[in-house]
Nucleic acid binder design. Structure first.
Lengths: 154, 154
DNA sequence: CCAATCAGGACCTCTTTAGTCTTGATTGAC
DNA sequence: GTCAATCAAGACTAAAGAGGTCCTGATTGG
């Protein structure tokens, strides 16, 4: 099912909540309340997001978290990357890959392409877009896509 | 990491092996040997693929499996779907979704869009392409993608 | 000094996945 | 008709990973 962990989902919820008042400082507790993510989990995620450079932390009393950039410049791909590590659909989508199947691993390159396409899809969506109340309203798929043209023609 | 299970990976390997000689009957054992997937696992996957309508089974002596369509008309999305169920990145990417977060679930629609984009990426790649020895050789991403144009403009 | 808050782990539990095995049904060949 | 090869179906186990909690320490404002 191409599963994305719940943590990544929660993380975007937290980020979205912060995006509603960027440049303001939010406590972990407050964000947990607003997003209905349990407090310890929210704290954990915020630490990961901090490590990923997406938010910055302010310690001490009246401390909290704040977006490190404007929501327009934070992508969903980054959020997922910060929480769940690099985006890779299969084992051998990454570089190393000790997968030593001779013949069938011409496939490898193709997986890499697919992987990349997915990554681009995630990178194309910003936090600002996620936070927007009303999504694009067009009937046809707004995230549009035309890989067939280039892949099929051979 | 947007994980795709190993089974899906194995399944494409099996399908790719069959694609190298479509319209020919392959035994589960033979495919297992060629793909280095353990025999019981291969058998299990082939059953799933059969149920998904991607291959057809021939029972009895000299039985085996055969692609039910030409490799050009089988997509990676279908293979994954057959093995791991419907492709859905988050819980609420699917229709039902008892996720009852009022405010933050304007996000839901956006997830759905992302999900759809990923699905299209997978659907755009056929088994024939996976089986092809040499992948597209162009330097720029062959699976090309321009969602920004439509999503960003608002 | 005290209270609020983040930092960084250690830790546990539960679900999911991967993989194996068993039993039964079907079919072709001899 | 019998036998051997092969798929069908599902129960079962084991390992991995994810989700989630908690504790202890460091930092800062009042």
């Amino acid at each position: 099912m191409l599963k994305l962990g719940k943590l990544a989902d929660y993380a975007t919820a937290l980020m979205t909540a912060m995006a509603s008042a960027p440049s303001q400082v939010h406590t972990a507790q407050g964000l947990a309340d607003r997003t209905h993510v349990s407090a310890p989990t929210a704290a954990k995620l915020l630490k990961l997001l901090t490590k990923g450079g997406l938010v910055e932390s302010l310690r001490g009393a009246h401390g909290g978290y704040r977006l490190s950039r404007s929501p327009e410049r934070i992508t969903v791909a980054e959020i997922i990357g910060a929480v769940e590590g690099p985006i890779a659909v299969t084992e051998c989508s990454e570089d190393h890959s000790g997968c030593s199947m001779e013949s069938s691993c011409a496939t490898k390159t193709n997986w890499r392409l697919i992987n990349r396409a997915i990554f681009e899809a995630l990178q194309a969506v910003t936090l600002a877009q996620m936070a927007a109340p009303a999504p694009v309203r067009r009937q046809e798929s707004p995230i549009h896509f035309h890989p067939a043209a280039s892949l099929a023609g051979r």
